[in-house]
Structures are given as C-alpha cells and as structure tokens.
Design a protein around this nucleic acid. Structure first.
Lengths: 324, 324
DNA sequence: ATAGGCATTGTAAACGTTTACGCAAAGTGA
DNA sequence: TCACTTTGCGTAAACGTTTACAATGCCTAT
C-alpha cells in the first residue's frame, strides 16, 4: 500500500493534523523538532501526497488546463513553453488536453474533462469555439482565456496578435517595396482569418489599390502547394501567405513550376517560425511572439494584469523583392 | 455552488447510491424509470462529476500521463496523436506534462506530479531518464513506458524504431547508390544516438569501408548549419543527418556555401516529417512511424500486446544522388 | 498567585463519490 | 401456498486530505 499521512502519524507519534501541517508548510504552527522528524519519516516511507484527496477538500486544483488543437501548427511548442513557464512561476501545474482537429465533439469533451477536474483556469489555444462550448465555459465559473484567437468581443478573455494590424502591416510593407498587385492566400473565414482579411483590404483601400480575390485555404502546406497555380492566374507580384506552412507550400510549388522567388513572385509569410529559415530562399515574415502570447494568457486567466494584443514584428529575410 | 449527486438525490427523491449507479451506468441495478428521471434532473442542474472524489475512492484515475521533452521536435504531434487516439479507445484520458528541455529538475517534477495524480500509466517521450527518475518510477508500481527511446534493456517497457537497424539501412542505402565516403552528422551519445552510431559503423564495416569521424550535435537546425563546414572538410559524398532538422540546417548552409545537393553532396535524413517536403530539394529520409509508436506505447503501458520496435521505411525524395 | 497570551498539538468534520451489504417487494416454479 | 430468486433501492463506510476549533502547557506581566 502507498503510505498516507496516517502512516506517518503513526510512525512518528503525532496526529495526522500535525503531519498535514508540516507537509503543507504551514509556517509557525509546529516546532522545528517535529517538523524534522516528520519530514524524515515521510522520506523514508516514500510518501507522495494524493492529489485527489487534496483537490477534493480544497475544491480546486492548482492546475491550468490547456486545450489545444491537434493541427500540426509548428508554433504550438512556443505557446506551450510560455504557458508552462509563467504557470510555474505562479505555482500552477499545466495539463494539456488535445481536442483533435477542429473536431467539435472532442473539443466539447476536452472542456468537460477540464471542468470535472476543477482546474483553476482553462486556456484554449487555436480553438474556434462553437456556441455550446461557450455556454459550457461561461456556466462553469472557471476563468477561461483564448490563446492566439481574438473573438472580437472584449467580454471574453483572449490574448493574441492584433491580426488586423498584422495583415495591414504586411500589406503596407509590400506596397512600400513597390508592389501594387498583392494577394492574400490560404486563409479561412473564422475569426483570425477574417481579421486578417480586413487588415489586408483596409491597407489596399488606403493605398487606392484594387484587391484581387482572396484565395481561401486551411493554413496548410498542401493548401499552399495547390494555390500557387491560382496565384499565377492572378498575375500578382506578391502574396501574403496565411501561415508559414502556406508560404512553404507556395514556395515548393514555385520551384516545381519554375517560378522564381522573389524575382517573379515575392512571398510574405505570417508566423515567423523556424520554417522560415529552413526554406530557400528564407521567408520574410510577420513574426508573432508566441511565447509571450502563452505567458500573457496565463496572467490573464489567473487574474493578473496582461496584454490583450502582443506586438508583432517584421523579420526581413529573402523572399521579398523591390519592384518599381 | 456546483451541484452534486446529493442535490440530484434530493431533487428526485432517491438515495445518492442510486444516483451514483445511474450516472456510472451500472447496468441492471436500477429501473428505466428512475434512470430517466435522474438523468433528466442531472442535465437540468448542469451536473458535472467531481473527478477528485471519484479518483479518491477508486484509488486510480483513468488517465495516462505523457511526460514530454520541450525540445521543438516536429514529430511530437504525431506521437501525441497516436497516443491520444489509442488511449481514447481504451477509455483513458491523456494529460501532458512538459518536462522542459533536458532539465533534470523539471523531469523529476513532472514524474512526481504524475505519481501524485495516481495515473494508470506513465509515458515518457524523448526523455533520457537519470538514475533517480528510474528509481522513482520503479518504486511507484505504476506502469511506465518510454516512447521513441530504447534503453537497451528488456525489463523496461519501451516502444521505438530500431535505431541500430535504421542507421544500418540508411548507410546501406547510400552504399547501394555508389557512395563509399559517408559520414554521420549531428548526433549525440545518449541511447538513441549511440544505437544509430552502432548501426552506421556496422554497415560501414560490413562493406569494408572506412568510417570518418562522427560529427556530434544536438539534432537541431543550428547544429546542421554549423556542421556543414566540417562535412566539407571530410570530403565525403554523402551524409546521414541525425534528424530532419539537422538535414535542413545542412541544406541551408549548403545553399549559402554553393554546395549543390545532391550533385556535390547527398543528404539522407532521419525522421521523415513534413520538413522533408518543405526543403529544396526535398529530403530523402528514413521515415519513422511516430503515430504508431505512440499508439503502441499506450498498448504497452496498459498491459496489452504491443510491438517493441515499429518498422521504419525509406522514403525516396530528391536529396540523394547515385555516384559511380 | 493569577490572568492572559502564545506556541504546539489533537479532535473531528468535511469534501463528493463508490460500493459492500442488507432489505423489501415482486416474480417464479413447484 | 411456500420457498426461493430477482429486481430495485437505501444505509453507511471508506478513500486521504485540510482546517476550524479546542485543549494543553508554558511564559510573562501584574
């Protein structure tokens, strides 16, 4: 049998209350001597606390649940690192619940699991919630925060890049380099996608430029590969890719079809993960600070001051050319 | 207050025992009528079970803990998917505990957290355990299994590729294509690394070929970038990269230094993730079945029949040339 | 000597579930 | 009709902690 505080109490001749106090480090309510004795015995016995018992009586577990989409985004590790780091500083553990790939049943299931564990906060990374999810979350009275997704309403906690601004900046960057026929590629119509579309359109409009049709996609490498042909048909000189993966797909297809990057086509990527360094040429990108998005979201869900929007940065590499 | 089975019992005029039985679906110990009534009330009240209470009384939580290295390996998602999928089939939840990046304290901490939660199994992905970790694990009586790491001893559960064989095959593949000066690059001396070194050496020896110095590294992109220079100094015609990331780094550096791949240098990568498709040229690889490694490790830790070694496959892309 | 305060410890209730055991009512077979 | 089984449900203990409250002994100030 696994030893319990009862065993320690018996062994050391004190009550379980005292053992509990020593083990929980309740300062000033026991003598040095007993503490030493109890700690020693606990160690000898190989004692491990039973979290279930603790959580039950405390009605709350010191754990943040991170519900995350299984889509192979290459930035999730950075987000997780940021979360892990900050959560640790605040004395919280992190459990990660995978919610499949835009699978509503699994998403729902993951949320329920988090609720059943009475976690101290729920983080939802790259998850587009449906109405039911939101109802569930709101009814639970457990704080929750979306990570890398802004639902467009201030009454739901969220930390992300300012996607409208991000796309605006990307577009303007290309315009400043002489491009006027620019398209946006590989994007969807969910929150993040439409925010970026808006930023792109606004920037084009502000420069009195015609906006080619936006080419929809799912942020994936395959989408990028597939879409190059349509990009060519648009006769643009530059594209903004919805993600690094889309940019990489575009680039691979470009190599195959003899389109030179950036001479024939400039590519501006969104995300700025390591993918941008791996490709040839390296991809100029709007770089998001995913680590910071993660750490700020922990602050937010734990009721600490936090940013809503984390700054983005333009990282110049080799996939964008000047034109005149 | 969150509703409990006591509330449901009061509301429906039965005892908490009956409520518990209905909610836990203990077939054949209650009437259809009461079941319907209880389920209805539970729904109305928005009842959620308290896992802490369940785990406490059952002395076991239906959860597999996955302890994972934070190193940005691009294959972890595939492993996690496999684990998630199989665990779901066996009625187990999955919690993921990040263990930092080869950080022994954090690794230790993660293991302790898993033990405290009395999970039904512990999976350790890409974790090199120290002696203390192993002691802790063994003392716990909770089954544990290493994922994508073979410690070289049969009494510790593990599922991985056969790394010796993998490296042997990679080497032989290159030799079959006419290469005789082949080096192994970016690898370390931990278990996986030394198994691959052995396979490489054995294959070279079996073909009576001289073995150039193995170039050590940490499986990273940066290591690959840095090591190209040393590869050039070795005057080899082909390299085996310890990971896709190393291969990508090698390739990027090759572009910069005007080394043509595969004409001047063939690269054989190990892992076969999407990275191999992104680069130009695409990387020929020893492809591991990470998804299967994940699902088999769940089987193993849950006491079901499972493979020790999951087959690897050679995926021919464009980074290896024939020489004569 | 006495009262009050403090340091240290113990007693016992509480957290929300599961489940062994028992009991009543209803059904079954002779 | 009787004995027996089955069905459906209730009672109460148990899981391992935390913590409010009470108790004890000792110290200090009067």
């Amino acid at each position: 049998m696994k030893p319990t505080i009862k065993d320690i109490a018996a062994e050391s001749g004190v009550s379980i209350a005292t053992v509990s106090r020593v083990l929980a480090n309740k300062t000033g309510s026991y003598s040095e001597k007993t503490a030493a004795k109890i700690l020693k015995i606990a160690k000898e016995l190989g004692y491990r606390k039973n979290s279930a018992a603790v959580d039950l009586v405390k009605k709350r577990s010191n754990v943040i649940a991170l519900i995350i989409n299984a889509t192979p985004t290459n930035f999730s590790t950075q987000i997780i690192d940021g979360i892990q780091q900050r959560a640790g500083e605040l004395g919280q553990g992190v459990i990660i619940l995978y919610a499949g790939d835009r699978d509503n049943t699994l998403q729902h299931q993951a949320i329920i699991t988090a609720l059943e564990r009475s976690v101290s906060g729920i983080l939802l990374a790259a998850i587009e919630p449906d109405a039911e999810d939101l109802t569930l979350l709101k009814a639970s009275r457990i704080p929750f925060c979306f990570v890398s997704l802004y639902l467009g309403t201030a009454d739901i906690l969220a930390v992300s890049s300012d996607n409208r601004d991000l796309a605006y900046q990307a577009t303007q960057y290309l315009i400043d380099r002489g491009h006027s026929r620019i398209s946006l590629v590989g994007i969807d119509n969910y929150h993040t996608g439409s925010q970026r579309q808006a930023g792109y359109r606004d920037a084009m409009a502000a420069n009195r430029l015609a906006t080619p049709a936006i080419l929809p996609g799912d942020y994936s490498f395959a989408a990028g590969e597939r879409l190059l042909q349509q990009v060519q048909a648009q006769h643009v000189t530059a594209v903004i890719a919805a993600s690094d993966m889309v940019a990489a797909g575009l680039l691979t297809a470009a190599h195959q079809r003899g389109v030179r990057v950036p001479e024939d086509l400039s590519i501006m990527s969104i995300d700025g993960t390591i993918i941008c360094q791996i490709t040839t040429p390296a991809l100029t990108s709007m770089t998001q600070d995913f680590y910071r998005i993660g750490s700020q979201s922990v602050n937010k869900v734990m009721g600490q001051p936090a940013e809503d929007f984390v700054p983005v940065e333009i990282t110049e590499r080799a996939s964008v050319a000047r034109v005149h």
